[in-house]
Design a protein around this nucleic acid. Structure first.
Length: 507
RNA sequence: GCGCCUCUAGCUCAACGGCAGAGCAACGGACUCUUAAUCCGCAGGUUUCGGGUUCGAAUCCCGAGGGGCGCACCA
């Protein structure tokens, strides 16, 4: 082959296949503009939506004309051409509807738009609501406007977008191409709306507390750090809203909640995201039992509103969320399973022996209470399928919880477990400032001994307690996990719209 | 952080040491009841990147990058 011919084809190819597809669409857009039709008009008046039309007319016999004129707007998701007749599937947020575009009926403007039409374009259409000869509800289109010309080719209309990387990085494409993805996020936002409604109906006030904090507290986790220029101070991103919310209860807000984005600078996996959402609620004059009641009703309300059933699937198994949920004492249950009656006051050797017998790893410095909690995590938690409250948790791992009146080594604290995962953590709040100081001191001591999990003392919080925190019940719900449960997906990234990923390079 | 897997056309996937292919999307054409429309034609590639082995590499080896999954930490 002569040199110059080779060069020419290389120049042609250097444009790239994707660029060629985009240029083609650009050309169509420019053709429209040249014909005096704005490919990006400012607005469009629609009279109805695909969903409303289906509600109004589904069940109609084939080949009917309703006489109803309608204007619809949406994205072209499929086209089936038959020469002088084209079937288009139009998608709006409410669903999809078929358009019948007949050459004999359409306007001149419509003809130009059809000429320039590609999958993915946003269009506005007008016509009569009819059913096709096959009985599908359709709009017999007489006019079309381009509302926004899409320049990039859409993913495969049958397989959608599969590659997880692209699905997370270009969530907009995932959403427009994959109905399953839309389903999951619809559940998410319905559930969150339901939680908010439920809390408001219960008389809780929704509040906002700082995300940028001088010292991240209220949980045990490594924070993200940033710098505040104006004050020239180091700030942490919140790991939990707990301490600020309790200060609001001190201030007289008897029922408060916050839907809080929390940030933890820790491992990322199927169940953990650096950025995640929690609902924390505090109710004056209640204790941890009220927390269990609240958690149960809250989750049931969210399930009802988002999926309309108490049956969910988690991997291979089917779970039943129907209340009431059993409440099991941790030490009793542990005895049932291991055959050993353990207590935080037991010598560590005794508890370690049980750990050894159940493949539960531990560190040298752990107390009996901490070991018991670890046994719960490794031995009991995996047994959980349907929801179960586990209450009575060692005080050693509960520095912000009130101790039990009859057994000061135990906290009046519970966790709600479903499908081998923790969903809610709640307790009677510790409101004795001096005991809180002791707890913080003990945590500091642990930190000094090298325990990376120790909680830093928060003097402002202690001062607040000194003004008087009423008896208070507090709970925290992991919203992402709840959405995973309700939607039946197994990766937390599938319930977060834009999960954290390494930045793309656009070179 | 450590281990394993993965990356091929815009999308979904083949080819697994011997000429890089298909379907969808695109482009040209036929078609007024399809719905994964069909039919004919045409085009589309630095096989993620960089090295190496080989007569020959998408394929084997080494390294880098993206992503996924385990383990550890955590909710």
């Amino acid at each position: 082959m002569p040199e110059d011919v080779v060069d020419a084809s290389e120049v042609e190819q250097s444009q790239g296949a994707l660029e060629a597809l985009i240029s083609e669409r650009r050309r169509k857009r420019d053709d429209l503009a040249a014909a005096g039709l704005d490919p990006y008009p400012s607005r469009f008046d629609r009279s109805t939506t695909a969903g409303e039309l289906h509600l109004a007319h589904d069940g109609l016999e084939a080949d009917q004309r309703t006489g109803q004129q309608a204007s619809l707007a949406g994205r072209v998701v499929s086209m089936r051409g038959h020469g002088k007749l084209i079937f288009v599937t139009l998608a709006d947020q409410s669903g999809t509807i078929q358009l019948l575009i007949q050459e004999s009926r359409r306007s001149e403007q419509a003809a130009l738009v059809v000429e320039a039409l590609d999958l993915g374009d946003w269009i506005g259409v007008h016509g009569e609501v009819i059913t096709s000869r096959r009985g599908e509800l359709s709009l017999d289109v007489d006019d079309i406007q381009m509302l926004s010309k899409a320049l990039r080719p859409m993913p495969d209309k049958w397989h959608g977008l599969v590659e997880t990387d692209t699905r997370y990085r270009q969530r907009e494409v995932d959403l427009l191409a994959n109905a399953e993805s839309r389903r999951v996020f619809d559940i998410r936002f319905k559930a969150i709306a339901a939680l908010r409604r439920f809390m408001q109906d219960e008389g809780f006030v929704e509040v906002e507390t700082p995300i940028l904090q001088p010292m991240a507290g209220g949980a045990i986790a490594r924070p993200f750090f940033t710098h505040g220029n104006a004050l020239d101070i180091e700030l942490s991103l919140r790991i939990a809203p707990e301490l600020y919310l309790k200060r609001l209860v001190v201030g007289g807000y008897e029922k408060v909640f916050e839907i809080a984005r929390n940030f933890r600078n820790e491992g990322v996996d199927t169940r953990h995201s650096p950025e995640f959402s929690a609902l924390e609620a505090y109710r004056a004059f209640g204790d941890y039992r009220d927390g269990m009641d609240l958690a149960e009703r809250m989750i049931v309300a969210a399930a009802e509103a988002s999926i309309g059933t108490m049956t969910v699937t988690a991997g291979e198994r089917t779970l039943d969320l129907s209340p009431p949920w059993p409440r099991r004492n941790l030490l009793d249950w542990l005895e049932e399973v291991t055959g050993e009656r353990l207590h935080p006051s037991d010598p560590v050797e005794k508890v370690r022996a049980v750990c050894d017998a159940h493949q539960c790893d531990y560190l040298e410095e752990w107390t009996s209470g901490k070991l018991i909690f670890e046994l719960y995590d490794t031995v009991l938690l995996p047994l959980v399928a349907d929801p179960v409250f586990v209450y009575g948790i060692p005080i050693d791992v509960s520095p912000l919880a009130r101790s039990n009146d009859d057994d000061p080594t135990m906290a009046d604290r519970f966790e709600l477990c479903i499908d081998a995962k923790e969903f809610v953590n709640g307790y009677s709040e510790l409101n004795n400032p001096e005991v809180q100081v002791e707890r913080f001191a003990r945590e500091s001591q642990l930190a000094a001994q090298g325990d990376l999990e120790a909680m830093p003392a928060d003097a402002a919080f202690v001062r607040a307690l000194e003004y008087g925190l009423p008896p208070t019940s507090g709970i925290g719900l992991g919203i992402d996990r709840l959405v995973m449960l309700l939607s039946g997906v197994e990766a937390i990234r599938d319930v977060i719209l834009f999960p954290m990923l390494r930045p793309e390079s656009f070179d």
